[in-house]
Simulated scan of single mutants.
Amino acid sequence: MAKNKKKKKKLGKWVLFRDGLINTILSLVVCYLLSLLFLNITFFNPITKALQDFSFLDVYYSERLNADPNIEPNILLINIEHKTRNEIGLMLKEVLKAKPKVVGFDVVLKEFRKTAEDSLLASYLDNKRVVNSFVIDKEEFISNHSFFSGSNDIGFVNFNLNNQNSVIREFDSEIKQHNKIYKSFSLQIAKKYLNNHEWKNLNIDKKLKNSSVINYKGNLEKFLSFSIDEFMLLKDKSIVENKIVLVGYLGTPTGNVFDVEDKHFTPLNEITSGKSIPDMYGLVIHANIIAMILNNSFMFEVGNGWIFFLMFFFSLLASIYFIWLSRRLKISYRTARKAVLFVFAILLVWFTLVLFKKGIVIKSAPIIAVTVFSAGFIKFYKHLVRWINTKLKFKSYLK
């Protein structure tokens, strides 16, 4: 008798596991089909875009959980505002005279005006310490006029080319087009600043092999910045010696909140949902990327394979637990399910933020969404079991 009871209990556990597994697989398939629906139907584009532009990790930055009081010592920014080419050329002359290690010029001069000022500016841009920039617009390259294109290094200023979200969380260090490899502006500058031994010792090429999550140090306040007028008025310009000087647009005047030219959304935006005004200039994003490379403060991103495994694992656990719970609780089952899922979501978000602080990035939003969906899918699975039992005998833990 006891043996039969034990056998029945063991069989019940197996049936429970099998039900949980079937529910998990079916819910994942439905999730996948729904994701295709969201991606391919124009009506859902705004929803899809909103989901792509949301991350729990934005909370980490927006609440300044990573607050660092120190200013980056190796990078200086100079704001060109809307100055003339003559004024920009004179500033470059003074910068180069002060012996910086690298000068990044994040300005594209598409026209040659055949003036003396253009000739002087071209001679400074041809300096071996200068890294020029270009923009990749679909298949087209927008770069300096050939007159300003010297023999020195050049890099693209786009950030994440494969995943053009509104919020800049990642960047590509290189891209292959027309059988040629192009390197990013930030990468070229960092590589020029570090010697070959340091570069190889830090194993940076391997770390930048794929799209990399940007470990933001901060916004404009984390970098020493000058307008052209402020820099030209400095009596002692040795402050730039052996440093990286980034030249580009930082608003008129510098840091103008409402000036959105070359400005982007980043995780540092204080409004994590329904962002209205871009919060960071492109030049400052490049400064953050360069600082991350120089300080070797790369983020490790958990791969999609592991994300899928965690989705499957937590969905399976949720399916088994809630199928079991549905037989134990009749009246309060829904309340208990919602409470458990709420606690699970809070704990996973908390754990995600803890890992992020340690330099590990895990996308918890899809894990939470799929797990909650699998838990809710049980009622549909229950109806499916009942329908199957009208056709043939199917043993199930559900009643």
Rank of each mutant, 00 (worst) to 15 (best):
L37W: 10
F17Y: 06
K97L: 04
N295M: 11
I323C: 01
D229I: 08
L347I: 11
S119H: 13
K217N: 15
L120Q: 08
A375F: 01
N215F: 02
F308A: 09
N144F: 02
G376F: 12
R113I: 09
N256W: 07
F156G: 02
L353E: 07
G12V: 09
L384C: 12
M280R: 01
I22A: 14
I323F: 02
V102R: 04
I80F: 02
L250Y: 03
L161F: 12
G282M: 01
E117A: 14
K237N: 02
D53R: 02
L294S: 00
G274I: 02
I239G: 03
T390G: 11
Q164F: 12
S123C: 04
V385C: 04
N45P: 08
H82Y: 07
L208W: 00
Y61R: 07
K263M: 04
E174D: 10
V15E: 07
D262F: 03
L16I: 03
W306S: 13
E81T: 03
N152I: 10
I285T: 03
G20N: 08
S276W: 09
W324V: 14
I360W: 02
L355C: 10
L51C: 10
K128Q: 12
G274C: 02
L109N: 03
V29E: 08
N158M: 06
T254K: 14
L398E: 09
G155I: 00
A116H: 06
F156I: 00
V59I: 07
L96Y: 00
E94Q: 05
K363Q: 13
I175F: 10
R129W: 12
S211N: 10
I189Q: 01
N79D: 02
K382N: 13
